[in-house]
């Protein structure tokens, strides 16, 4: 399994565009939002609150994009026949899926860490060291829900559709989940919609950590519930959808 893990990691590492969009873009957004809107803050405390909130949102956005982006490859591997080829080697299907999860989770770390560093070093966000550690840890674990969602999309859709679907999904989850504009600014109906999205609860995990209380049980259950639902659906698709064209 370690051989497969190294193999998959090397493949993703070759994809520079992926690294650009999942690491650099949220980092630049963090600076942009904080410099543009944070400048309007009156008091230092108000600036801190704004800079922290936008950093948490962008960490969530970056990790969400990375988790989904890392799994587009699955639909390509399915279309090219590689997943089918792997099935006739001694590599177990469970290992293939486990490695996809591991790689997906590993790839969310750079965006989380880089955006946090930008928040600290460029925007001057100040948090206790334990809170920084807790924030990264919680958002990292929570990103598993989006890795599971990416696995579901990657295994369910054709390669031509999956790329677009994942792009749209990322934008919808970010926008409606309140990662770009805080849900407090949403009209009532949109706010209710946000509460049905995994992205809202995921960012909520981070917000609760920086507030100093640690994540609430409801929030943890919500993110874990989404993760479990996506995982179960992926398992169903893996079982049902053949890895090949049905022919003579």
């Amino acid at each position: 399994m370690s051989t497969l893990f190294a193999f998959q990691l090397r493949r993703v590492g070759r994809n520079r565009q992926f690294l650009f969009f999942t690491v650099l873009l949220p980092a630049l957004f963090t600076i942009f939002f904080t410099q543009v809107f944070g400048a309007q803050a009156g008091a230092a405390a108000q600036y801190q609150a704004y800079a922290t909130a936008s950093m948490v949102s962008m960490m969530a956005y970056g990790a969400l994009g990375a988790a989904l982006g890392a799994t587009i490859r699955i639909s390509f591997d399915r279309a090219s026949g590689w997943l089918r080829q792997l099935r006739v080697t001694p590599v177990a299907t469970s290992s293939v899926v486990a490695v996809d999860v591991l790689v997906g989770m590993l790839l969310t770390l750079p965006s989380l860490v880089v955006v946090a560093l930008v928040g600290r070093l460029v925007n001057g966000v100040e948090l206790p060291l334990s809170t920084w550690a807790g924030l990264v840890a919680v958002l990292w674990l929570g990103s598993g829900a989006f890795v599971a969602l990416g696995l579901l999309v990657g295994h369910s859709l054709e390669d031509k559709a999956a790329g677009g679907a994942i792009g749209i999904l990322g934008v919808v989850l970010a926008a409606l989940g309140g990662l770009w504009v805080p849900v407090q600014l949403f009209p009532e109906s949109l706010r209710a919609l946000a509460h049905t999205l995994p992205s809202y609860w995921y960012a909520e995990l981070g917000r609760e950590v920086v507030a100093g209380d640690g994540p609430a049980l409801l929030t943890v259950l919500a993110v874990a519930g989404f993760a479990a639902a996506f995982a179960v659906l992926t398992a169903v698709v893996l079982r049902r959808r053949p890895l090949h064209a049905v022919a003579g």
């Binding site: 993703v12 591997d77 026949g81 006739v88 064209a245």
Partner: peptide, 14 residues
Amino acid sequence: VGAMLQHGGLPGES
């Protein structure tokens, strides 16, 4: 058992 499949393939970016 080793196999060459009709619709087997190779992974991109490798």
